[in-house]
């Protein structure tokens, strides 16, 4: 058997981040859903007006950021378990990171970019 390579002295941070992001997703996500449910801005103007509030922008951004962070940790775990060749795993990791980073950029553009 090859020498096991381990001992990163990390893990608690990611584990904690996964839990915290899940918590944010649950609380903020539920808040957003409930908000839209009871006070849904039906026309575009109302929608735009709602999104002029920085608090809502922040909230939406936070939810998406949490989702991306959560997804990153989860997917990384899955890749760690099932994708054994290191080069392949690294490539997959980079791809996942790229996609998630793009999502974040896109979200930022959508939320703040419409202001201009």
């Amino acid at each position: 058997m090859r020498k096991p390579i381990t001992g990163t002295h990390s893990g608690t941070g990611w584990w904690l981040a996964q839990r915290v992001s899940a918590l944010i997703l649950f609380i903020a996500g539920t808040g957003l859903l409930l908000g839209f449910w009871f006070a849904a801005p039906f026309d575009f103007a109302a929608w735009q007006a709602a999104f002029r509030h920085t608090s809502l922008k922040l909230l939406v951004w936070l939810v998406v950021a949490s989702l991306c962070l959560h997804a990153w940790i989860g997917l990384r775990d899955v890749l760690m378990d099932y994708m054994k060749p290191v080069a392949l795993r690294l490539t997959a990791n980079v791809l996942v990171l790229l996609v998630l980073a793009l999502c974040m950029v896109w979200t930022t553009v959508i939320v703040w970019g419409s202001d201009g």
Binding site: T6, G7, T8, S10, G11, T12, M80
Partner: peptide
């Protein structure tokens, strides 16, 4: 705790 602070040794537990 130092030894177990590791993505593999401990945190593979789901």
């Amino acid at each position: 705790l130092d030894y177990l602070e590791d993505t593999y040794r401990l945190y593979r537990c789901r």
